[in-house]
Amino acid sequence: MLSVKHIEAGYGESIILRDISLEVKPGQVVCLMGRNGVGKTTLTKTIMGTIKAKSGSIIYDEQNITKLAPYERAKLGIGYVPQGREIFAQLSVQENLLLGLEASRDRKNGVPASAIDKFPVLPSMYQRKGGDLSGGQQQQLAFARALASKPKLLLLDEPTEGIQPSIVYDIQEVIRSIKQQGDTAILLVEQSIEFVKSVADYYYILEKGAIVAEGSIDTFDDSVVRQHLVV
């Protein structure tokens, strides 16, 4: 599905990611973990294409996408929920959702029910501006917007960060249900060890821009946590 090979990337002259390789198989949930500032967001941005890789390659669906622009990657079926949600503040909730269809092949039928049904609170807010929503509501909107194009790969960058517990639970349930349907692979950046253990198939741990530990989720135990994640 997605395979990142020996990626090096960063901002301007400074290099953040060094020789990163990872793989996401179809239908899998792969978690990317690590302390703050180790390059998790940089990696998702590099996969999405908003940061250009300096070397290495990104293969998606047997196609080399390393040189493609972000919008071309989105059209190939990569959905993205960025850190900080990035809702279009001046646009209505409905318009935000419709923009999620831009990458989709069939736009005529509107936003698919499968994207909205998971977030029952959204339809009641269609006419409100995206910027007037609370953080948790915005997060749900960003999630639904990413699902609108029925992506084959979802990049979720800390979807539960800074959100009230009940909505965190809702979002975790949504991730579980997507996994159960099995037709969307997920690369999830997540801090909650408990949730990762319950949902992931595979994990990678980043430290100083390099992958220091990886394995299937049953090898993810307390010693790994203590060594790489405890502050």
Partner: peptide, 17 residues
């Protein structure tokens, strides 16, 4: 709508296709 999206948040608009 595309136009307004791009003018407000170029990067995110690109990420949506």
């Amino acid at each position: 709508r595309r136009m307004r999206a791009v003018m407000q948040n170029r990067e995110m608009a690109a990420c949506l296709g």
